[in-house]
Simulated assay, not measured.
Amino acid sequence: MSGFDDNPFVDPVDVNPFKDPSVVEVTSTTMDGIQEYNPFSASGQGNYNETTIPISEGSSQPAVLQPSPEPSLQASASAGQAKLLKQQEELEKKAAELERKEQELQNRGSSLGPENNWPPLPKFFPIKPCFYQDFDEEIPVEYHRVSKMMYYLWMYHCVTLFLNILACLAHFTVDAAHGVDFGLAILWFILFSPAAFLCWYRPVYKAFKSDSSFNFFFFFFIFSFQVVVYIIQSVGIPYWGNSGWIYSISVIGTNLAVSVFMMVVAGFFTVSAVMSVVLLKMVHGMYRRTGASFQKAQQELSTGVVSNRTFQSAASTAAQTAFQRN
């Protein structure tokens, strides 16, 4: 009952829990150990020298550094620089080649002009080409078609004249009285083939090349006669050396095979006449769009005559002669 008789409100006994003997012993021991420990003392070193800590096998491997991206960037930069240098060398070579060709063209133009390439004869042939012809280089694009058609018409004209020789020869073998036609057919082929090239094909080629009014007028004048000649040849008057329709029909009673062959040649002459009329109209339409005129043709003629070396030499000779007489 004594325990229940105590007054709880009486001042408690002054008890310090930290003064408990077990707590004091533990705290004092821990503090003493901490204060006495010196890692640099002989005793501390001796304790750690007796035991060694083994190094793991993984740590014995050498450290490997990750490759940095700088070498790859340098390699790509070097490759790009080498590519640019190569392209620059190629461009320099092309520029040098173009300069060389341009120099050759200038030298050729200043000295002898373009080298003739027509007719296309082999190099070992004793006769050399007489003209220079290049549609892509000399003729404007809008005149390519018509100029080439005129060239094809001239070739067709030559083939027709050659077939006319064969037709007249066939009739001559059947009827010896028409030997004159065979002779005239040979003459027309020898005369009209180069004459057509020089008198109407080359003028129209030069007209398209340099927009020359004089060459246009010269072409119209000569080619109009050529159209009339084609019509006469297609008609085929006997003893004129042309196996046209009248001449070929008259041979039906003599030899049918020869007559048929002569009719084929008459058809060739007819096609030549039709094509010549069509091309004459086409060239005339282009001539009107170029702005050419008769006044320009007169100016070109006068300028060409005055600048002609033959005319100049003749005029100087005449002036010297007149001066000496005076």
Rank of each mutant, 00 (worst) to 15 (best):
V227P: 01
I190L: 15
P194M: 11
V15N: 10
P67V: 12
E300F: 08
N255F: 06
K86T: 12
L98I: 10
D136M: 07
F197I: 03
D181H: 03
A77V: 02
I231P: 00
D6G: 12
F192A: 07
M1D: 10
K123C: 00
P122W: 10
F197P: 03
N164T: 01
W118F: 13
A207S: 15
R288C: 10
A77S: 06
Q312T: 06
G253H: 01
F208M: 14
L73W: 06
S56A: 14
V251T: 07
A185H: 03
V305R: 13
F9L: 09
Y151A: 13
W118T: 02
A77G: 10
L187N: 05
R288M: 12
E115C: 02
P54C: 02
L301K: 06
V227Y: 04
T27L: 14
S243F: 05
Q226H: 09
Y151I: 00
V146C: 07
L112G: 10
F217V: 08
F9I: 08
I190D: 05
P39S: 15
I34R: 10
F189K: 03
F189G: 07
V180D: 09
S68W: 03
Q312N: 03
M31L: 13
Q320K: 15
D14W: 13
V258W: 07
A77F: 11
V64R: 11
N255R: 05
W154D: 02
Q66W: 08
V227C: 08
A273F: 00
I34A: 10
V251L: 05
A75Q: 09
F197T: 04
F4K: 06
Y132C: 01
Y156N: 10
D136T: 09
I165N: 00
R289Q: 13
T30H: 09
L84P: 00
A196K: 06
M262D: 09
A314C: 07
G291E: 03
A167M: 04
L163Y: 15
A79Y: 08
K206H: 12
I53K: 10
F18Q: 06
D134Q: 00
A77H: 02
D211V: 14
K206Q: 12
N255Y: 02
K206I: 08
V265E: 03
V260D: 02
V227T: 06
F269D: 00
N215D: 15
R145W: 11
Q324P: 07
D211P: 00
G244E: 01
S224T: 13
K296V: 01
S212Y: 04
Y37M: 04
P8I: 14
S259P: 04
G44F: 03
G46F: 14
L280M: 15
Y247W: 13
F18E: 11
C158T: 11
N308S: 15
A63Y: 12
Q103T: 12
K209F: 03
V265I: 02
G3N: 12
P114I: 02
